[in-house]
Design a protein around this nucleic acid. Structure first.
Lengths: 187, 187
DNA sequence: GTACAATCGGAATCGTCATTCCGCTTCAAG
DNA sequence: CTTGAAGCGGAATGACGATTCCGATTGTAC
C-alpha cells in the first residue's frame, strides 16, 4: 500500500522540480526544490535517488508528451503540415521551459537506457514526418535527418536560452520553413 | 618593466586556457589549465584574477577576430555574399571551439562592460552586413536583426554542442540561407 | 656580483552543494 | 486504540574546486 502522504509529497516534489528546473536549469539547488515543494530535502531523496534522476523523470515526461503529439499528427494524415507543426511544437516547448537536455548531454552526464530509447523514438518520429512531407512535395528532397536534427536542436536551444518574443520566434521559424520547402523551379 | 618570464608565462597560460576551455568548456578546472601550461595555479591567478576573467579574455580575443572579419567583408564591397560569409564564419568558429558564451550568460554570470561593448559591435556589424545584402536583393526584406540573431545563435549553439560532420553543417546552412533569400515571385 | 622586488609553485583554506543519517512523526492494518 | 513500518525534516557529512597565502625563486637594475 502506498501511503497517501507519500504519494502527495511525490507529486509536490515533481511539480516544484518542474518549476524550479524550468526556471534555473541544472544549477538549481536541491534545497530550493525541497523548499518550494514545502518539504525537507530528505523527502526529495526518498522519491528520487539523485538530482539527475529527478531531472530525468521530468524531461522524460515531457518527451513522452511530444512523442504523443507526433503520433497524433501522423495519424491526422496531413503530410503537408504535420512535419512543420511538430517542429514548431518542439520549439514552443523548449521556449516554455528550460529543458537543458543538451546541457546535460554536453556536461557529459550519462544518458540512461530509457532516455536513449526516447532519443531513438524522437528520431524515428521526425524521420517519419519528414518522409511523409517529402513524399507530397512539402519539403525539398535534398535534406536528410541529420540536417533536420541540427536545425531543430539549434532552434530549440536558441528558444531555450534566449529571451525572444513570440513574434520573433514565428518569423524565425518562417525563415527556416521557407528554407525547407522545395526550391522554386530551377531556371 | 615587465619581467620576461612573467610575459612568457602569461602567454603559456593563455594558450593552455584556450585549448582546455575549448575542449571542456566552463567545467574545466583551473588546476588542469595550470598543469597544461606547465605552471602553478598561483601563477594563473597572478595573471587572471578569476576563472571568469581568464575565460573572458579568451572569448574577447576571438570576438575581436570575428569583428575584424566583418569589417573586412564589408570593405570588400560584395554585398551579395558578405552577409552569408560572415554568418558561416561565425558558425565555423563556434564549431571549432566551445565558446559557451551563451552558457556563461544563461548561467547568470555578469557580462562585463567590455563584453557588452563587443556585443553591441557584433550586433552592429551584423546589421550592416544584413542591410547591404537586403539593399542588393540578396536577402528578403521581411527579416530583421532579431530573427537573424536567433538563427545565428541557434546555428552556433548547435554547432558548438553537437558533433556534426562538416557536410551536415554545410547542408544545414544551405537550408538557412535559402530561407533567407528573397521569396520566389509570388503567384 | 648583490640586492630587492616581482614572480613562482602548490599546499592549505573556504564555500558551496549534493547526499546521507537518524531520531521523530504519521499512516493504516488489525 | 495500538503498533510497526514507512515516511519525514533537516542537521551533519563529504567532495570538489576556486581562490588565497607565503616561503622559495628568479629577473633586473646598479
Amino acid at each position: 500500500m502506498i501511503r497517501s502522504d507519500a504519494a502527495r509529497n511525490r507529486a509536490k516534489v515533481l511539480a516544484a522540480a518542474e518549476t524550479v528546473l524550468g526556471e534555473q536549469g541544472l544549477t538549481a539547488r536541491m534545497d530550493e526544490i525541497a523548499r518550494r515543494a514545502g518539504v525537507g530535502v530528505g523527502t526529495v531523496y526518498r522519491h528520487f535517488a539523485t538530482k539527475e534522476a529527478l531531472y530525468a523523470a521530468i524531461v522524460s515526461a515531457r518527451v513522452d508528451l511530444l512523442l504523443d503529439e507526433a503520433a497524433r499528427l501522423r495519424a491526422a494524415a496531413e503530410p503537408e503540415t504535420g512535419f512543420f507543426r511538430f517542429f514548431a511544437q518542439v520549439v514552443a516547448d523548449a521556449a516554455r521551459k528550460k529543458t537543458l537536455t543538451d546541457a546535460l548531454h554536453s556536461a557529459g552526464i550519462d544518458v540512461k537506457a530509457e532516455q536513449a530509447g526516447q532519443r531513438t523514438q524522437m528520431r524515428e518520429a521526425l524521420a517519419d514526418l519528414l518522409r511523409d512531407a517529402q513524399r507530397v512535395g512539402a519539403v525539398r528532397l535534398d535534406v536528410d535527418l541529420p540536417e533536420i536534427l541540427a536545425l531543430l536542436r539549434g532552434a530549440s536551444m536558441a528558444a531555450e536560452t534566449g529571451d525572444y518574443s513570440g513574434p520573433v520566434i514565428d518569423r524565425t521559424l518562417a525563415v527556416l520553413f521557407d528554407g525547407l520547402r522545395p526550391l522554386a523551379p530551377p531556371a
